[in-house]
Amino acid sequence: MSRAVRALRGATTVDVDTAEQIEERMVALLTELFDRNDIDHDDLISIVLTATPDISSAFPAAAARTFGLGDVPLLCAQELDIEGATPLCLRVLIHLTTERGRNEMHHIYLEGAEGLRDDLPG
């Protein structure tokens, strides 16, 4: 089977805006994404990490580096401040090469983000 470039989505929330909880929840999200999708570090291309405007105590990329992703291109950005959006939310978009088809990717949503994309396979 040939390899393709795919994107993998995930999100989680924090209860409080602290560097410790951002690291804890981001590592838990990345762990679940990597485990459920059998991601090999060498398959990674880049990762975009976002936080809602109510998170300001730490960069999500700093948490990703503690997971061992220091050599992967990481980019942090702030989500749009949309009324009614999930608060205290961290999102991730992983670009990777894989033999899996698009419908075989397991997107992961944890904590208060569980209902964000129930249309995607989990």
Score class of each variant (00 low, 15 high):
E20S: 11
E20M: 07
Q21M: 11
Q21N: 08
I22A: 02
E23R: 15
E24M: 08
R25E: 06
R25D: 02
V27R: 11
V27W: 02
A28M: 08
L29V: 01
T31V: 09
E32C: 09
F34T: 03
F34N: 00
D35A: 12
D35T: 08
R36M: 08
R36S: 14
N37V: 05
I39F: 05
I39D: 04
D42P: 11
D43N: 13
D43C: 08
S46N: 11
S46V: 09
V48N: 15
L49F: 10
T50D: 09
T50F: 01
T50W: 05
A51R: 15
T52A: 04
T52F: 00
P53H: 05
P53M: 05
I55H: 01
S57A: 13
A62V: 13
A62D: 15
A63P: 00
R65A: 12
R65F: 08
R65P: 08
F67K: 04
G68I: 04
G68M: 06
L69H: 01
L69I: 10
L69D: 03
G70Q: 12
D71G: 14
V72N: 00
P73R: 03
L74Y: 06
L75N: 12
A77K: 08
E79S: 12
I82K: 11
E83F: 13
G84C: 03
C89T: 10
V92F: 08
H95I: 11
L96M: 11
T97V: 14
T97Q: 12
T98E: 01
E99C: 06
R100V: 05
R100T: 06
G101V: 07
R102H: 13
R102G: 12
N103A: 12
M105W: 04
M105Y: 10
H106L: 15
I108E: 05
Y109K: 02
L110G: 01
E111V: 06
G112M: 07
E114R: 15
G115F: 11
D119L: 06
D119Y: 07
L120D: 00
P121S: 07
